[in-house]
Nucleic acid binder design. Structure first.
Length: 343
DNA sequence: TTAGTATT
DNA sequence: CATAATACTAAA
């Protein structure tokens, strides 16, 4: 019996393999969107398929994906996926999991050097045979070797229970606040959204001296490896390979930066799309009227939501894109006229 | 400058 | 035709 989770897994796997194959990114995205749609179903997909209209009634299901999922439901097997798996080694997906290595690099390693797994990559690196691969310079090879070493030490990265990350967060944010140039510091991301597990810890700081703050952050004793360090953000591995991202912004952008850095990604896409439809641009630096490029919000997170006609949405409710419609009752509809100036 | 990878 | 916007790094 094929259940919803099987369909989600199958569609996601197709997307990953198509990506390594270098397929049109809209096609890849289509499979991911269809997978997300099935994941959000509250009933067995077989039931949807059986009813009038069938799978095509689901958002994100066009003729091609509907046909494939029908085949999977009916005979418990999808030839299209089998063909892809015959073409592309499954172990390449693990290569893509290395930080800094994505589908294009994995495809290059495979096609140019026949590397199809982490073990083969490690052997090739040790033998020095990565040199000479097109678009793979010395620095890239160094990064790959470092990533392989980190993985051997810590194993594959896994999400951690939120409770296991709390001590890190409660130690890090006050430490950042105690720096001379830092005004504010808070954990954001899925930690702030109170997800049960988190993939990494995101910390936002406001400062006029981002470089100094990020320099301090990247040289903390518990930092095992610096992944990237630029002028506005720094990502490190600490605490057995757990990733911690620090983003620094000017104090007047703290609200919009918190909005951005809290996510979720789907929530941000909806918020930014809504801004566009209202003739505005939303990014981590503020909310801007496109006409005249005038900044109208961003100092506070609440100000961003209200300028977009929404009430402030608690982080826990920002998990899915639909939250804006479900919970973000329009301020215009709910507030009384005399409160209008508060926006 | 651009491609690739990354972040929410 | 297709959901947003931006940052960092290495290679060319």
């Amino acid at each position: 019996m094929v259940d919803n989770a099987d369909v989600v897994h199958t569609l996601g796997r197709i997307a990953d393999l198509l990506e390594i194959r270098g397929e049109n990114s809209f096609k890849v995205r289509a499979y991911r969107m269809a997978a997300a749609r099935v994941e959000s179903l509250t009933e067995p997909i077989a039931g949807v398929a059986a009813r009038d209209g069938g799978l095509r009634r689901l958002d994100g299901f066009g003729p091609a994906i509907a046909e494939k999922v029908t085949e999977l439901l009916n005979i418990g097997h999808l030839q299209y996926l089998a063909d892809l798996e015959a073409e592309i080694p499954a172990a390449l997906l693990a290569v893509c999991e290395l930080p800094g290595v994505g589908p294009r690099t994995a495809a290059t390693l495979w096609r140019e050097a026949g590397i199809a797994s982490l073990d083969e990559l490690e052997a090739a690196a040790a033998a020095g045979s990565l040199e000479g691969i097109p678009r793979l310079g010395t620095r890239s090879i160094e990064r790959i070797v470092a990533a392989l070493e980190a993985r051997r030490r810590n194993g594959a990265r896994e999400r951690r229970p939120r409770g296991r990350v709390v001590p890190l967060a409660v130690a890090l944010t006050p430490a950042l606040r105690s720096l001379p140039d830092v005004e504010r510091a808070h954990a954001a991301g899925s930690f702030r959204r109170k997800r049960e597990t988190v993939k990494d810890l995101d910390v936002l700081v406001s400062t006029r001296e981002p470089r100094a703050v990020l320099q301090w952050f990247s040289t903390l004793p518990s930092v095992e490896r610096v992944l990237v360090r630029g002028s506005t953000k720094c990502s490190v591995e600490a605490d057995s390979g757990f990733q911690v991202d620090c983003r620094a912004v000017a104090p007047e952008a703290y609200g919009s930066a918190m909005q951005y850095f809290t996510g979720s990604r789907a929530h941000n896409i909806r918020m930014r799309g809504r801004a566009l439809r209202m003739g505005m641009l939303l990014n981590e630096y503020g909310l801007f009227l496109i006409e005249g490029n005038r900044r109208i919000a961003g100092d506070t997170e609440r100000g961003v939501y209200e300028a977009l006609g929404l009430r402030w949405i608690p982080p826990e409710e920002r998990e899915h894109g639909g939250d804006i419609e479900l919970t973000g009752a329009s301020v215009r509809r709910t507030r009384r006229p005399q409160e209008a100036e508060a926006v």
